[in-house]
Structures are given as structure tokens and as C-alpha cells.
Design a protein around this nucleic acid. Structure first.
Length: 586
RNA sequence: GCGUCUGUAGCUCAGUUGGAUAGAGCGUCAGACUCCGACUCUGAAGGUCGCAGGUUCGACUCCUGUCAGGCGCACCA
């Protein structure tokens, strides 16, 4: 696993340090503690491939003008045998470095050698990370927010995997507590409605379950529902299916028993549906973790004891409180209500305790909607109270999605039961487009999803643009192979004919994939990868436009063909990270 | 009111630990295929980085204040 940029950068630091060392030993500069300095990639390519502010940083301790120091350093530099061939002093005292041709041709060789592994790094050093995402309530269908969370969570998991972490994907199934109560109550109400005279009349009228459900859903006069239940038509469908299989017998049983039977009937179907929808979205979880297991194993009551023992709880008005304000949370939180029932917070603490202690992951990441952002400080507080480093728990907050079609906003309302579901979205736009679009912007930005653009098959659509680049390369390679020119291994010497600005730019960008993976992993931001792939596609198209491959002189032809293959591999690897199709023809 | 996130070109957005003349796509205008896939490429116009201070060699980036918008602020989850 090599990283051409990182190794060049490290090499450059060495070169600079040894130059300083020589200056000190020759008595040309004073021996002072080395200040921290940068080696970075300038935005403007005319400023070289790397630039260092070392002379500016040394100005103060050496009490000398930055440019003067820069000149001394440059005189002491030894570039022979390194990846660099030239330096320049610029501006207030920056030292700009230019990479050698050998370095550029080396990049292509590395990519052709590492193939599908190119871009992977070992930065994570095998540390384990649990990424929990989507975790939609199993009481109903998934919405657009879950779609964004799914793409980001899965993309982030891939990025972390590529950066050398041991990653597991997890879905937390809220199959216990109040939501399930509410689910049971809703199912029971609908079931009772179906068994009523009005319901029976409709059952006879409609043979189609969907139509029947819609009729009942629409008729709020005959089939009223209280405020605090799920109104969606999917609830009626469950009730209807249960009725079809079991009839009205349950009406003679107590309400609690009915609810239990209905939940036992509907919940597994909903969970299965979540799995199916997410698999269709190309998300495969390592674990579907059930909240109920935390209750059954006693982990929930255990964590209450642990918190009590920590000394950060107190009782007030009959309830048990967690003094989360001890750890910077804005106020304290109730753990156990006056009626003796724990709040949702307790199983959640038990769950995160399970992640970090019981299962021992080094880090746990949650992908959360912005409406849950207030939840982060209290969970960090709970972890700290339990003696866990709160930095091992991280939350990615993602802002709300605005769906736009025909220039207008699609408003999604949970209440109406007519929210845009993940399923609807995937019916409207290709999976590639959905996954790519949701990773176009960083999580923490308000995102506008343009449905028209996602469907459009043109260069305006970024996902088509990048896939087209890949198909185009494959076509070139096919064409040349048909004429007897296949990719062959070239020496550094033969490869060094690639020196036009377009070729150099392209190679430079190819070289930065490992770095991009690292920075995406470091900042938990998979959107770096989509932007990288677009830039790569653009640079390839520019190269293609300027540099002919077919018909070029032979050494150049083979070098350019190798470059094409390197681009193809690099592009394909970014698609692999994002799990989108890699078409060889379109 | 408190907390939190976001304000960068007409629109959608980049800008990696503070660096050199603030970038891209779309849109607009003007161009490029008898030639490897034109689903492509080239060029032009377009900016007080919300506003005001501060920190320093240097600020879109850090700090303070302020304005506008999103999202929260339960013994709901």
C-alpha cells in the first residue's frame, strides 16, 4: 500500500531537516529549537508540487528575514537522488519544490501494480470502528432522511475500511419500548376498526388490500384515530393481513393480548422489509442489533446500577436523574421516571456501553439526523460517567434533505403517512444516482436533492459524467487492443515521455487518491470521494482532448495507454468505495 | 430566550492542520468533431467570502459581537 504523495512529503521534510542540520553544523545559522513548519500542496500549480513555510516559521527564532533564511536553506539542499528536481523561493519566503519525472512515472507503475488495492492505506492500523446508521424505527417505512443516512453511513464505512480500519456496519432495531407500544396500539385500533360493522362493510367491498387500506385511511369520520398513534396506511395493511389469516377471534381477548399478537405478527415483517429495502440500496449490515436483547440480558438495569455507583445520579420527585451537567451537558436527564419505567435514554446508554465495553470497539460512530443533535452531549456525558473516554463515541450530524422536482420542494410530512419513502425514491431515481448524490455534499450541510437531475442522462448529472469517463477509457483500451496495442509494462525511462501539462496534472491527481481516502476517513467525510472522482474524470477528459493515444509514436502510445489504464483503475476504485456501477459501455 | 448547524458568483456547492492573485459545475454568451465514445473539450462575463470588530508576517479559515435561515430545547423517542 503506497501513498506517493505522503512519501514524497515525508521525504521532503527529511530533506529540509538535513539541510537545516548542515547549516547549523557549518555555523551558518544559530542552533535553536526547530519550530513547527508545513509541507503542503499549493493551490496554484505554478507554485510547485509542494511548498514549505519553513523559512517563515524560522524567522522569529532566528531573528532573521524569511527570504534570507530561505536562500540559506536552498543552498544547503541536496536534491540529487530524491523525488525532487528543482526549488524556487517565492513570495514572502515560501520554498517551492518541483517533483521529478521519475516520481510521475513511478505513480503510474504503482497504480498498475496495486490495481484494485490502489488507494488503500494502513493509516487506521486495524483499529476497530462500529458505524451505526439508518436505525429507522421498525414501526413504519424508511424516509428520505434514512436514504441520506444510508448512503453516508455506508460510504463512510467504506472509506474507513479503505483507510485501514476494521469496520463493522450496524443497524439498531428499536424493537422495545414506547415506540413498540405505540405500534401495538395503532395496529389494535385498526384491527378493531376492521372488525367493526363499518370495517366489515369495506372488507366486503374491496378485495384489494391496498385499496381497502386507502379507503379506511381516507375516511377519518368513520375510522377516527387519536393523536398519538401511527396513522400510516401500512398499519392498516398489517391489520388487514392479520385479519385475513386469523379472523376476528382476537376481539374476544383482552387488549394487551391483542396488541402482543399483532406486534408479533407485524414487527418481523417490517424488519424484513427494512432489510430488503436496504439490501436493494446495496447496504449490507454486519449486525442487526436488537434493543430487546439489552432488556432481556439485564444490560439495561445493569447500566442503571453502574451510573448510580458512579455517583452522578440523584433522586428528585420520585424520578432517578443523571447529573449529565457534571460533564458539560446543558441540563440533567431523567433515567427512570417516577412511575418506575426507564426513559429511552437508558437502553441507549446500555447500547453504547455494549459497543465500547462489552464488544470493545475502539470507536463508535452514529449517523444522526440534525433533529437528534441535542442527544450527543448527553451520550458523551453518560460514557464519561461510566469511565469511557467520550471521544471514542462520535456522532455525524446530517442536516435535512430538501427534495426538489420541477423546481419545487417536495415537503415530507411524517404525519400524513404520505412521506416520500426510500422505496419511492429508488423507484424514481437509479440506485447509483441516489448513492452518489447523497455523498455529493458533506453530511453537515443542508442538502438539496434534485430529482430531475438525478434521472437526467447527461453530463450535467455528475454520476453520468464520471461513469462516462470510465466507459470511454474502456472503449479506448478495447479499440487499441483490437489493433494489436495492449498494455505492457514500461520502464521508468519509457514512462517519462508523459510530460505534457494535461498528463502531469492527471498523474498528480491519481497520486492523491490515498491521501484523499485518509482525509475522508480522518474527517469522517465520504463526500471527498465523489468530488475526487469528478475531478479525476474532468482531468481525464482534458487529457483525452489534448493527447491522442491512437496514432501516437510508439513509445508515447504505450505510455499513454498505461496512463489510461491507471485512470481506469483509480476511477473504478472510487466507484468501489461508493458502491456504484462501473460500466464498460453505456 | 438558550443551544446547535449553515450563510462564498444568478443557482447548487468546493476551499485539507491559518498561506501566495478565492475555485468548480449548472445557467448565460462565444467557440471546437472527414480524427481513439461530442454523455466531451476551449474561452468570456460573473465576488465587499452575511455584516462589524479583534488576534498576526498573513484570515473564507481562529476569537468576540451582530443579522438571516435550518434543527433542537419532555418523567416522547
Amino acid at each position: 500500500m503506497s501513498n506517493p504523495i505522503k512519501s514524497a512529503s515525508a521525504e521532503l521534510r527529511e530533506i529540509l531537516m538535513s539541510a537545516l542540520g548542515r547549516l547549523v553544523s557549518e555555523g551558518k545559522i544559530e542552533a535553536v529549537p526547530l519550530p513547527s513548519f508545513n509541507v503542503e500542496i499549493p493551490q496554484d500549480k505554478s507554485h510547485g508540487d509542494f511548498a514549505s513555510n519553513i523559512a517563515l516559521a524560522c524567522a522569529k527564532p532566528l531573528k532573521s528575514a524569511p527570504r534570507k533564511i530561505a536562500e540559506l536553506i536552498c543552498e544547503a539542499l541536496i536534491l540529487e537522488g530524491t523525488s525532487f528536481e528543482r526549488v524556487e523561493i517565492a513570495g514572502p519566503g515560501f520554498i517551492n519544490f518541483f517533483l521529478s519525472r521519475n516520481w510521475f512515472s513511478g505513480v503510474v507503475s504503482v497504480v498498475l501494480f496495486e490495481k484494485e488495492k490502489y488507494g488503500r492505506t494502513d493509516t487506521g492500523a486495524g483499529k476497530s470502528i462500529l458505524v451505526e446508521f439508518v436505525s429507522a424505527n421498525p414501526t413504519g417505512p424508511m424516509h428520505i432522511g434514512n436514504a441520506r443516512g444510508g448512503a453516508i453511513g455506508d460510504g463512510l464505512s467504506s472509506v474507513l475500511d479503505w483507510a485501514g480500519y476494521r469496520v463493522e456496519r450496524e443497524f439498531y432495531v428499536n424493537d422495545a419500548g414506547n415506540q413498540i407500544e405505540k405500534f401495538g396500539k395503532s395496529l389494535d385500533l385498526r384491527y378493531c376498526q376492521l372488525c367493526s360493522d363499518d370495517g366489515q362493510a369495506l372488507v366486503k367491498q374491496y378485495s384489494d388490500t391496498e385499496a381497502l387500506s386507502q379507503a379506511i385511511y381516507n375516511d377519518t369520520e368513520k375510522f377516527p384515530m387519536p393523536e398519538d398513534v401511527y396513522l400510516g396506511a401500512d398499519i392498516i395493511v398489517h391489520a388487514r393481513n392479520f385479519y385475513s389469516e386469523n379472523g376476528a377471534d382476537l376481539m374476544n381477548k383482552p387488549e394487551e393480548e391483542r396488541k402482543e399478537a399483532l406486534v408479533a405478527f407485524a414487527l418481523p415483517k417490517n424488519i424484513q422489509k427494512l432489510e430488503d429495502d436496504l439490501r436493494k440500496y446495496r447496504i449490507e449490515y454486519d449486525t442487526w442489533f436488537r434493543e430487546s436483547t439489552l432488556h432481556n440480558s439485564g444490560a439495561v438495569s445493569e447500566v442503571i446500577e453502574l451510573l448510580k455507583n458512579s455517583g452522578h445520579t440523584y433522586e428528585q420527585e420520585g424520578a432517578l436523574w443523571f447529573k449529565s451537567s457534571d460533564f458539560g451537558d446543558e441540563k440533567d436527564r431523567v433515567l427512570v421516571r417516577a412511575n418506575g419505567v426507564p426513559t429511552y435514554f437508558v437502553p441507549d446508554i446500555a447500547y453504547h456501553y455494549n459497543k465500547l465495553v462489552t464488544r470493545g470497539f475502539d470507536t463508535a460512530i452514529d449517523i444522526l439526523g440534525a433533529d437528534h443533535h441535542g442527544y450527543v452531549p448527553r451520550m458523551k456525558a453518560a460514557m464519561e460517567a461510566l469511565g469511557i473516554d467520550p471521544n471514542r463515541f462520535n456522532a455525524i450530524i446530517m442536516q435535512m434533505v430538501r427534495l426538489v422536482k420541477d423546481g419545487e420542494t417536495y415537503k415530507l410530512s411524517k404525519r400524513s403517512g404520505k412521506a416520500v419513502t426510500l422505496e419511492t425514491l429508488l423507484d424514481e431515481v437509479p440506485i447509483d444516482a441516489a448513492r452518489y448524490f447523497f455523498n455529493l455534499r458533506e453530511a453537515n450541510s443542508h442538502f438539496e436533492f434534485d430529482l430531475d437531475l438525478a434521472i437526467e442522462q447527461s453530463a450535467k448529472n455528475p454520476v453520468y459524467y464520471v461513469q462516462y469517463a470510465h466507459a470511454r477509457i474502456c472503449s479506448i483500451i478495447r479499440n487499441l487492443a483490437a489493433e494489436g496495442f495492449s498494455i505492457r509494462k514500461l520502464s521508468a525511462e519509457q514512462m517519462s515521455v508523459l510530460d505534457s501539462p494535461e498528463e502531469v496534472e492527471l498523474i498528480r491527481h491519481i497520486a492523491s487518491l490515498p491521501n484523499t481516502v485518509d482525509s475522508a476517513a480522518r474527517d469522517y467525510d465520504p463526500s471527498r470521494i465523489t468530488r475526487y472522482s469528478q475531478e479525476l474524470a474532468t482531468l481525464f477528459h482534458k487529457f483525452y482532448d489534448k493527447c491522442r493515444i491512437k496514432g501516437a509514436e510508439e513509445p508515447l502510445l504505450y505510455a499513454r495507454l498505461s496512463l489510461c489504464d491507471a485512470v481506469r483503475i483509480t476511477l473504478r476504485n472510487t466507484f468501489e468505495i461508493l458502491k456504484i456501477d462501473c460500466p464498460e459501455k453505456m
